[in-house]
């Protein structure tokens, strides 16, 4: 089932916004205005496509590279910048209040997805927990335990492996001897499917099917979406140390954004004017987000004490009382 042209335009625009945001974040990091940032360059179709298949009341459990999904779900770009700029308030999103913050440890959020899905099942709510993680995460016990538990309890969860082929310097061939990562679903007794993760329409369609299945009480699924990490692991990484430029260049032929644009052009639904209009619009929106980010008043240093517990325990209250910001 192909997307309607309008829907496809929406997906295209979201992928483009994600990429432009990504470029801006890297520029901000390079000029000392943002902390270490994990680029999602090249894998936008997976992140955006999965989020697009969700309903607002579903819950997203993202990896740290899922800017596309988070922005689609309503996280503000200024909030994302705040997080990557080193401010905890960036994960206190105004939008999707029940969505999880990014998981920094790889794959350890997969059991949370099982827990969230169990909550939905217990309350008999037609909602789905959607967990995104990378190929490296599939080597972890947490992911195996989460898939297993979701399978045995038939939980309304969808697990998506964004297989971008690289876990920092480790290629997926060194991550597993399994023929596909989707096959890991077999051991958990759930359907697993490998798809072209650079085909945004296919991502939406596959995720929508898995979500419908979960919502209908038929249990969890695993989707392996094949894509490619076009950028460095993070701004602190230099992929040229371990990866051939030629390989990266070849991958540009699969670029999900160029592919979607070609399709829209073929459909007669997109042209130079729309493209230029969109780029200008995105640039302006990103500028406004950067301004909001830059204008966000700093947290008073003493607030570092205030969210560790609901109520400040005596020993922490004592440390807070003795705290002097000028000592740092």
């Amino acid at each position: 089932m192909a997307q309607s042209t309008d829907a496809l335009i929406g997906l295209y625009r979201a992928m483009c916004l994600t990429r432009a945001f990504d470029a801006k974040a890297i520029a901000l990091q390079r000029t000392g205005r943002l902390g270490t940032f994990a680029s999602s360059l090249g894998q936008e179709a997976v992140s955006v496509g999965v989020a697009a298949a969700m309903r607002p009341e579903d819950v997203l459990l993202p990896s740290f590279r899922d800017h596309g999904a988070m922005l689609w779900r309503g996280v503000d770009m200024a909030e994302s910048l705040l997080y990557w700029g080193g401010d905890e308030r960036g994960s206190d999103f105004a939008g999707p209040r029940q969505d999880f913050p990014v998981s920094v440890p790889v794959g350890t959020h997969a059991p949370h997805a099982a827990g969230v899905a169990l909550a939905f099942k217990l309350r008999r709510e037609p909602r789905v927990a959607v967990c995104l993680f990378g190929d490296g995460a599939t080597s972890k016990g947490d992911v195996a335990e989460a898939l297993n538990i979701a399978g045995v309890w038939r939980l309304p969860a969808v697990f998506v492996v964004c297989n971008n082929r690289w876990a920092i310097s480790t290629p997926v061939e060194r991550q597993t001897a399994a023929e596909t990562l989707a096959r890991k679903a077999d051991a958990a007794g759930m359907p697993g499917e490998r798809i072209d993760g650079n085909d945004v329409e296919l991502v939406v369609e596959t995720a929508a099917r898995a979500l419908a299945r979960a919502r209908d009480g038929q249990g969890p699924s695993l989707i392996e979406a094949l894509t490619y990490r076009m950028g460095d692991h993070t701004t602190a990484d230099d992929a040229r140390r371990y990866r051939d430029d030629a390989e990266v260049s070849r991958q540009w032929a699969q670029d999900p954004i160029a592919r979607t644009r070609r399709r829209l052009v073929d459909l007669g639904a997109w042209g130079k004017a729309q493209e230029e209009g969109m780029l200008a619009e995105h640039a302006a929106a990103i500028e406004r987000a950067v301004e909001r980010y830059a204008a966000t008043p700093a947290q008073p240093p003493v607030t570092l004490f205030d969210y560790t517990y609901a109520n400040l325990p005596a020993e922490l209250a004592e440390q807070r009382a003795a705290f002097r910001p000028e000592d740092a």
């Binding site: 997969a110 059991p111 949370h112 099982a114 169990l118 909550a119 217990l122 947490d142 335990e145």
Partner: peptide, 24 residues
């Protein structure tokens, strides 16, 4: 609930339930 034999997931599932308002 009896869980599978998986201590990390027992704690992790509890984190997910708790985030959803349960008191596991």
């Amino acid at each position: 609930f009896d869980t599978p034999l998986a201590e990390a997931a027992i704690a992790g599932v509890a984190v997910g339930l708790a985030a959803q308002g349960f008191r596991p």
